[in-house]
């Protein structure tokens, strides 16, 4: 078995896919993984894959052309998911994606690859994609902006999966006239959107935390108004913390204004 070790990112995994495919060892002799194993197994050969943006872009282009927008999105989402999401002991994320791609490209219509839910690799890829998709959809609602002194809207999130590209896309469409920033505190990445331009993702090692504390004068006023609304809208006769917890998991609450 040849095991390709790739970085846990879209580009990392797609580079892995490229190299694995180009190696010509035969698909059944290849596995991909994103984490170095605790114990190396004796008869396997480990090949580490440095991230290469050209190779990754080639893979992305091929997949997009062959699978079409919808299925490509699903693969992209699966690759953005957290490895341990859904179930801890399961098929490696990178391996599931590789096998899904291999199957897809062997089909006459690659866009139908996710119909093969009976196949464990496809099923895993599908579950991973669902995981990212669900969290991204949750955050479209649960994310909260605060207005800083300089007029920038700033939001902080702690997502499990790498959802920033999806959020960036959604909020740039929604708030084209705003300067905003969405900070993924678990990965130290941020979406930056300058007014009227396209958003980009950057790392935030040099983020000025002091600047984030300086809020605009009206910010507290609107937060107070929002909390007033939030408290008032609940019907006393139906108070139901169990249902609230079920619908709004506690891990999101650290970043939600009305729960702070």
């Amino acid at each position: 078995m040849y095991i390709f070790l790739c970085k846990d990112s879209i580009d990392g995994i797609f580079t892995g896919v490229y190299d694995a495919w180009a190696s010509r060892y035969g698909h059944q002799n290849i596995a991909l993984t994103t984490h170095t194993p605790d114990n190396y197994s004796l008869f396997d050969e480990y090949i580490s894959v440095p991230c290469d943006y050209d190779k990754s872009a080639k893979v992305a282009r091929t997949l997009y052309n062959r699978m079409g927008d919808e299925t490509y999105q699903e693969i992209y989402q699966a690759a953005s998911a957290l490895e341990t999401c859904h179930s801890r002991k399961s098929i490696d994320k990178a391996d599931a994606i590789y096998k899904t791609i291999v199957l897809a490209l062997s089909l006459p219509d690659a866009s139908k690859v996710l119909h093969y839910l009976g196949n464990p690799y496809i099923n895993r890829a599908f579950q991973l994609s669902l995981c990212t998709g669900n969290e991204a959809h949750h955050l479209l609602g649960f994310l909260r902006f605060q207005e800083l002194e300089n007029g920038i809207l700033f939001a902080q999130i702690h997502p499990k999966n790498d959802v920033l590209p999806f959020l960036g896309e959604h909020f740039s469409d929604r708030l084209p006239e705003e300067n905003f920033m969405i900070h993924d505190a678990t990965r130290n990445l941020a979406v930056l959107h300058p007014q009227g331009k396209r958003f980009f993702i950057t790392d935030t090692k040099e983020l000025n935390h002091e600047m984030l504390q300086r809020l605009s004068p009206q910010e507290m006023e609107y937060r107070r108004l929002w909390r007033t609304f939030f408290d008032n809208i609940a019907i006393e006769a139906r108070i139901n913390p169990a249902l609230q917890n079920q619908n709004l998991p506690k891990r999101f609450r650290q970043d939600i204004t009305e729960f702070q």
Binding site: F142, E177, F230, R238, L243, Q244, N247
Partner: peptide, 21 residues
């Protein structure tokens, strides 16, 4: 591209009040 706002078909829940709605 100007102004503010868009809308997506499945709808978005922004928070859940104390009654779980």
């Amino acid at each position: 591209g100007r102004g503010i706002g868009n809308s997506i078909a499945p709808g978005v829940c922004h928070t859940f009040s104390a009654d779980g709605r």
